[in-house]
Every structure is written in C-alpha cells, then in structure tokens.
C-alpha cells in the first residue's frame, strides 16, 4: 500500500536499478562542531568561574543546612515543624543541586565533546570456544559417572528435593497461626448483645435514633476489652452500620419468613463490603443508598441492602436486632452468613 504513490518515479527506478545501489550509503559520523568554549579561551574561563561559583553555592548550602539544624528548632507546632523541614530540605537541595549542576555544566562546556567510536563484538562465543566448553562439560559428566550410576543420580535428586522440607514445614505450619479458617463465620454478635456507638462504646437506645440517623456500631464492650489485638480483629468483622428510616420507606429487609430482623424502621447491616472488605460507610439518607468509598459498590438500605451499583455482588449481611427491656438495641443473634468478601468455602 505504500510505495505505489510514486508510480512514475518507480518506472524510472526500474530502468535505473543497475546504476544505483540498493540502499543509501552511511554518511558517517557528522563532523564535530566546535563549541564557544573550544574556540574562545575567554568563554572557557567564564565557564570555569561559573562552575566554581556553583560548587561554591553548594558548599554554602551544606553549611547552611548544618546551621539550620542547630538554629531552627521545631517548637512543637505545625508551623514550627514545617519551617524546620522546609529549611533543612531546601539547604540540602541547594548543596545537592549545586554539585549536580556544576558537574554537568563542567562536562558539557569544558570536557572534550569529540565523539569516540568503539567497536562492538558479537556476543556469541566462537565455535572453538563452544567446542571446548561442551567438551569440558562432557568430561565433567564422565568424571562424575552420573550417566552410568543411575541409583546415585536418583538418590542425589531425592535428597535435594526433600531437604527444603526441613525448612518449609516449620515455617509454613507456624506462619498461619492456627489455620482455623472457620473463624470467618463467627463474629462477636450474639443473642442480647447490646449495640454500642463506635468509638465511644455507649449503648444505643432505640428511641434516641431520629429518622435519617446513621450510627456506626460495635458490640458493647468495656474500654479494657477494646485495648487488645483480639478486639481489633473481632471488630474488623463485627462493625455494623445502623440507620433509621421512615418505616414506610423500608421496602424490604433480609428477615426470613416469620421473623423480624429490623425494629421500627431501624436496620443494621454489616459494614464490611461483600466485594473486597472495605468498610462501606457513605450513607446518603435521602436515597437510602450506602456507598463504598473504595470501589463504589452501592447498596440500598431500604431494600435489604441489595447491590444497586458497582463491583459487589451480594447484599451486605443483616444483623437481626430488637430492643431489650430497657429500650436498648440488642442483637437477636450473630449474622446468618459470613460477613465480608467471598471466599472459596464460604457456603460450605
């Protein structure tokens, strides 16, 4: 498609093929062009002074950096730390950039800029070398007798294959803790466990929630309990978002036949996204939509937390709730299904 555009030219070309080489000749390395500093000693001198000056500025920067370190002590305020950081960094940059700019300017303006040409050599070794190498290997194989002694080969290979176990077994068996992956199924929620505000831990009275409220909820626990890794790991599964809708806005929830999992327009859903486990928490009270800030899965809190947009596939699991004698919200039970992202044996 390309070379038909010069049809008349090609006719001529066909005629002249004999007279012209097939390809153009390499014109060779372009002639060296002298720089100002090559021809004008004054200019070279000027550049030399300039380079020395830039190195000098670098020295000043380095010394200034030390001075700043001792002189500008951060006073504990944001502005103080900012000033110290900025001064230390800028003086450091002056010292570094000074060296860089001076060295490069030196190379560009004063060092010879005549191009050199080096030959390349083929990377492959010569046939003779290869022959010797192959011979060496063959001699080695012969010396070891590995080709003849089959049992020895098998034994050596087995030993080599097995020895990593001595290292891998202790490592792998310990590295995963107790390997009890069924823990994914259970959370701290249980019958009559009170719902409490996160992070204060105050229990929640149903009457205190106004319509349009959203509350971030944890299982009630003492402050001491909350100061442990066990708590953080359990909290990672137990966090719940509680919202109160107008009861007539609540189209559906996940309660099975004959049970009521919500209470007077109050619904509680796991906050852990069924996509990859981000806390889903952007509740839009007018649309009743709950949006995940990580990947924008959107759930409809008025309709059983069904997915209305985004990469999540399943609704957020609902926490069955009710109120106790004192009017506090409590769980009826744990979640009916594992919370959070899907995994291979989730339904087993």
């Amino acid at each position: 498609m390309s070379d038909n555009q010069n049809t008349p030219g090609q006719d001529v070309a066909a005629r002249d093929t004999a007279a012209h080489p097939e390809r153009f000749e390499d014109p060779g390395v372009p002639a060296h062009r002298s720089r100002l500093t090559d021809v004008d000693p004054q200019a070279a001198k000027r550049n030399e002074r300039l380079i020395a000056l830039i190195f000098g500025i670098s020295c000043v920067g380095a010394i200034a950096s030390v001075v700043v370190y001792f002189a500008v002590r951060p006073d504990g305020t944001t502005a103080g730390t900012r000033l110290s950081t900025a001064l230390l960094g800028v003086t450091m940059a002056i010292s570094l950039l000074g060296i860089g700019i001076a060295a490069i300017h030196w190379a560009k303006s004063l060092m010879s800029d005549h191009e050199h040409v080096d030959e390349r050599h083929t990377l492959a070794s010569s046939p003779e070398v290869r022959q010797v190498a192959v011979q060496h290997l063959a001699d080695g194989v012969e010396d070891s007798g590995i080709a003849r002694r089959g049992v020895l080969k098998g034994a050596a290979v087995s030993a080599l294959a097995l020895f990593p176990l001595t290292f891998a077994v202790p490592l792998i068996s310990s590295v995963g803790g107790d390997w009890n992956v069924s823990k994914f199924r259970h959370t701290l929620w249980e019958r009559n466990k009170r719902l409490a505000y996160d992070p204060t831990g105050r229990p929640i009275r149903a009457a205190d929630l106004t319509v349009g409220s959203a509350a971030h909820v944890i299982p009630e626990a003492s402050q001491e309990e909350m100061q442990s890794h066990e708590w953080i790991t359990e909290k990672a599964k137990a966090v719940v978002l509680l919202v109160r809708l107008n009861p007539e806005d609540l189209r559906s929830d996940q309660s099975p036949e004959g049970e009521t999992w919500s209470y007077d327009g109050i619904v509680a859903y796991s906050k852990i996204c069924t996509h990859v486990g981000c806390p889903v928490a952007l509740y839009e009270q007018q649309t009743h939509h709950l949006l995940c800030p990580c990947h924008q899965s959107t759930f409809d809190m008025a309709d059983g937390a069904k997915v209305v947009f985004g990469p999540a596939n399943r609704p957020l699991p609902q926490l069955p709730i009710t109120v106790d004698d004192e009017g506090y919200l409590v769980a009826q039970d744990d979640f009916a299904e594992p919370i959070g992202p899907s995994y291979w044996e989730r339904l087993k």
């Binding site: 060779g28 390395v29 372009p30 490069i104 060092m111």
Partner: peptide, 30 residues
C-alpha cells in the same frame, strides 16, 4: 550518521560520563 549495529558512538565514561552520571545523581537527589 556513522551509527551502526557494529559500533557504539559517544563519549568516554571517564571523564564525561562520570561527571554527567554523577551530576545526574545529585540532581535527582536534589
């Protein structure tokens, strides 16, 4: 011109590239 698969055309490591590369390190760091 003059650059082929059999040669390499440019400046010598010492001093030009030492200065340019070294200088570039300080510029990047700076």
């Amino acid at each position: 011109g003059g650059r082929t698969h059999k040669n390499v055309v440019g400046y010598p490591l010492f001093p030009v590239y030492i200065a340019k590369m070294g200088g570039n390190f300080f510029i990047v760091f700076g």
